[in-house]
C-alpha cells in the first residue's frame, strides 16, 4: 500500500512532537471518522463527542501513532473502540432510546426522499446490528469499496460483502411495509 503524502508529513510532525499533527489529522480524516461514528452510533451528538474524545486520545498516544503502519486503520479502530465502549455503557444503563435522533438527511435538496422516508430509514438503521451498520456506513456514507472495508476493519473481503448483503436484507425487511 502506498503511503499518501499527508501521512508521511504526519509522521514527521509526530516525530518532531509538533501539535500541528492534530490539524493535519483533522483536515484529512475528521469527516470520515465523524461519518463512521455517526453511522454506527446513529447519532451526530454521540459522533461529535466521541470525535473529541478520540482527538484527546491521539494527543495522549502520539508516540504510538507515529509507529502505526496504517494510520487511517489505526484511528478507525480507536474510534470503533470508543464507540463500542459507549454502546456498551448505554446497554448497561438500559438506555433504549424511545425516540430516535435523526442523524441522516437527504443527500440533495431536491432529492426524492421525503421526511417520512428519512425517518423510517433512520429508525431501520437503528434496528440492525452494529456490525451490519458499520458496513452500510462505510459503503454509503464513507464511499468505501469492499476491499477498503476489509483492510480497514481487518476482515476478509467476503466477510465484508456478506455482512453488507445481510444488512441490506435486514433493512429491506424492516422497511417492507413502511415505505
Amino acid at each position: 500500500m502506498i503511503e499518501p503524502d499527508w501521512e508521511k508529513e504526519l509522521k514527521k510532525l509526530l516525530v518532531a512532537d509538533d501539535p500541528l499533527a492534530l490539524d493535519l489529522i483533522y483536515e484529512n480524516l475528521a469527516n470520515d471518522l465523524y461519518n463512521y461514528l455517526a453511522g454506527i452510533m446513529c447519532s451526530v451528538h454521540d459522533a461529535e463527542e466521541i470525535l473529541q474524545e478520540l482527538f484527546i486520545k491521539i494527543a495522549e498516544k502520539k508516540r504510538m501513532l507515529s509507529e502505526a503502519e496504517n494510520i487511517k486503520a489505526y484511528l478507525l479502530r480507536m474510534a470503533a473502540n470508543l464507540a463500542n465502549d459507549r454502546l456498551r455503557s448505554y446497554k448497561r444503563k438500559a438506555d433504549k432510546r424511545e425516540s430516535y435522533e435523526i442523524f441522516i438527511e437527504s443527500a440533495e435538496k431536491d432529492s426524492s426522499a421525503t421526511d417520512d422516508e428519512i425517518e423510517e430509514l433512520n429508525k431501520a438503521l437503528n434496528e440492525i446490528s452494529v456490525e451490519q451498520r458499520e458496513t452500510v456506513t462505510m459503503k454509503f456514507f464513507m464511499g468505501r469499496t469492499f476491499q477498503e472495508m476489509a483492510d480497514l476493519l481487518g476482515i476478509s473481503i467476503n466477510t465484508a460483502a456478506s455482512r453488507y448483503r445481510r444488512a441490506l436484507e435486514e433493512l429491506k425487511k424492516i422497511l417492507e411495509d413502511k415505505i
Binding site: A30, I104, S111
Partner: peptide, 9 residues
C-alpha cells in the same frame, strides 16, 4: 440509501 447522507459535522 444513495439518497441520504449523514448530517454534516
Amino acid at each position: 440509501l444513495e439518497n441520504i447522507r449523514i448530517k454534516p459535522i
